[in-house]
């Protein structure tokens, strides 16, 4: 999706909803995403902002709605452009777990554990002194994730699901036995993988 197409789509959607006095912030992102297809005409984002910031009907509620909508638009726009311009993890699979940027020389390593119904999921390994780093499942789909910045090297780890250790991560590069159980092994910093 090009920026100009998104620009036009956002403008049309907003214009339509404001004119119908049916503007709702709730679900805006979903409605915009649903309609993301085949819009061509190009117009400046500045015009749109001017129109949005100008009083429309004089009503205070409408003004607040427009300001809120503008913020939402920028959030949606930022998310789209951010993903397209600088994909996190050098093209790693997309997911919803927010993380701080990795320090220079480190990779953000994605840990994924499917655990529907679990109350808590964490990853322990020799990168965190075997102290739990929690995974999160913000959308409640049972897929727990965490991204952890790690320097290039070999790491042993296991997941801890509701207190039970699980050392056989399907995404691991290798497995080893340790204390009679399995640990997963991940090599970070392979040439050609994310930086």
């Amino acid at each position: 999706m090009r920026e100009d197409s998104l620009d036009q789509l956002l403008r049309d959607t907003l214009k339509q909803e404001v004119s119908q006095e049916a503007f709702r912030l709730e679900g805006l992102e979903d409605r915009v995403v649903t309609e993301l297809a085949g819009r061509v005409p190009r117009s400046g984002l500045g015009d749109l902002l001017k129109r949005l910031l100008a009083p429309t009907r004089g009503a205070r509620i409408a003004q607040l709605a427009v300001v809120g909508a503008t913020a939402a638009i920028f959030l949606v726009l930022g998310a789209f452009l951010g993903e397209r311009i600088a994909p996190v993890g050098g093209g790693a699979p997309r997911h919803s777990t927010p993380v701080a940027a990795a320090p220079a020389g480190e990779d953000e390593v994605l840990f994924i554990m499917p655990a529907p119904g679990a109350k808590s999921v964490a990853v322990v390994g020799n990168f965190n002194g075997w102290s739990p780093t929690p995974l999160s499942d913000p959308d409640g789909d049972g897929i727990w994730t965490a991204r952890i910045p790690l320097s290039p090297g070999r790491y042993e780890y296991a997941f801890v699901v509701d207190g039970h250790w699980w050392g056989q991560d399907p995404l691991a590069d290798d497995y080893v036995r340790s204390f009679g159980q399995y640990n997963s092994v991940r090599y970070v910093g392979r040439v050609g993988e994310g930086a």
């Binding site: 020389g105 290039p152 070999r154 090599y187 970070v188 392979r190 040439v191 930086a195």
Partner: peptide, 8 residues
């Protein structure tokens, strides 16, 4: 390990 970026 020797083939990693910044190899250990």
């Amino acid at each position: 390990l020797s083939q990693l970026r910044e190899p250990p």
